[in-house]
Write a protein that binds this DNA or RNA. Structure first.
Lengths: 236, 236
DNA sequence: ATATTAAACGTCAACCAAACAATTAAAAAT
DNA sequence: ATTTTTAATTGTTTGGTTGACGTTTAATAT
């Protein structure tokens, strides 16, 4: 068979938008870019895709390099292909967003990349089109989390209801009535109440909860609104 | 400045999942692949990205080549990068879905590509990973259409309520109660009733409607469910 | 003991969604 | 001209969900 001659080839990078949650606010992990151009400017963690590597593979590798974590929630967002987005040479970038439990994150690894967690609300200006990538990632998370319980991926194994509510409030940049929030959350049946309390945040203390993994798997598909209820959907 | 040496470069293609609607069912436009490998097999319409071309530009070009249409609703889905997805040489593909008014489609252009409309439900097997691409495109449309009124892009300027309902029923593969459907649709305020009727489908005839373009633009953002109402969202 | 702080619990009214049946318009058949 | 046929159009009831709103409870600090 003949090769596809006369066609151009391009560099391919993956860039990761890495989200974490400190119990109060959403954070994003950024690095100081190590190479020219834009050396020492703030940037998303990324890397070039290798010849034998899938895109998901590259994203996982890049993420693992920075955080030391494997098996993280990672989802492709989209491809950015403006011809001039990288001034040196045309480079396509595929973005992924990662949701990690910030506590599992290994600090030592990130030292070599000069990585730092920023509050999403006041992250610094980023190189190239990375600001736009982050904007789109925020938008994507809002979409996804409106239909699927992915935000739990940001929480530790044990978490409190106030934490969970803070998380939703921060993602959607809004205030939620706590009584209504708890009612809705309870209705999902996704939470299991634990006997212990977290006393760090208040005098009374807030009960810890954990995620019901089985129901989480089962309820991950969910669809609302205009459209019939999930059980009416023929999934063939 | 130095180039990014020692990095691999890859072919980039765009592939379009082109949807149409005949008043009854969703259709997809496929072509007979012109080049080896898999010559004469059914395939999505695609093409390689050119050096000076953006991804969106490439997708629009490819779409226009096949359909003769410009200014079509076109949205990127995702990148496919399995190292072995193209047996000849590693090729990344970025998929787009297009929603077109099937009546505007120029038949003559597609002759040279041996294009054909298929009912989405019984489209033939496609080359490479194109079946998976179509699956993901269907899923994406369901998501998007659950929150945004994109399905109108598939309809002609004048359409009837039964047509609109058929469309939703076909996209979500379900039966919708027509009284509830009309109530919800009316509540959006997106439709303008026209004095004429379409008599082709029934003896009584069904009134034509058209889309209120201004409200369509204004209501395009909408968000439901778990999350606060749109007007409560702080969009900064 | 009392005050303080934040978590947890409960109620009501308004709204929305799902289920359900009857009527109307216009063409076709007699 | 009358009847039949077919599909579009219109309406109501009921149950559940949402949103708004106050009060109580648990633990610590004084």
């Amino acid at each position: 068979m003949t090769k596809y001659t006369k066609q151009s080839r391009f560099l391919i990078a993956v860039d990761c938008i890495i989200f974490g949650f400190d119990g109060e606010h959403i954070k994003i992990l950024l690095i100081k870019r190590a190479l020219e151009p834009e050396k020492d400017k703030w940037s998303l963690m990324g890397g070039f895709v290798k010849p034998e590597e899938s895109l998901d593979g590259a994203a996982n590798r890049v993420l693992s390099q920075l955080t030391g974590l494997e098996g993280v929630y990672l989802e492709q967002i989209q491809a950015y292909g403006d011809p001039l987005r990288d001034p040196i040479e045309r480079t396509l970038s595929i973005t992924y967003f990662a949701l990690i439990d910030i506590n599992k994150y290994k600090t030592q690894l990130s030292d070599q990349f000069h990585a730092e967690w920023f509050l999403l609300k006041d992250a610094p200006k980023l190189i190239f089109d990375h600001d736009k990538m982050v904007e789109n990632a925020k938008e994507r998370i809002r979409y996804k989390a409106a239909l699927h319980p992915i935000l739990f991926e940001l929480l530790p194994k044990k978490f409190t209801l106030p934490q969970l509510q803070n998380l939703y409030e921060d993602v959607y940049n809004t205030n939620i009535d706590n009584r209504n929030f708890i009612r809705k959350i309870s209705a999902t049946g996704l939470l299991i109440k634990l006997p212990e309390k977290d006393k760090t945040g208040s005098k009374k203390g807030a009960f810890y909860f954990k995620l019901d993994k089985k129901k989480y798997q089962a309820n991950f598909q969910a669809f609302l609104s205009f459209i019939p209820k999930p059980d009416k959907l023929i999934t063939s």
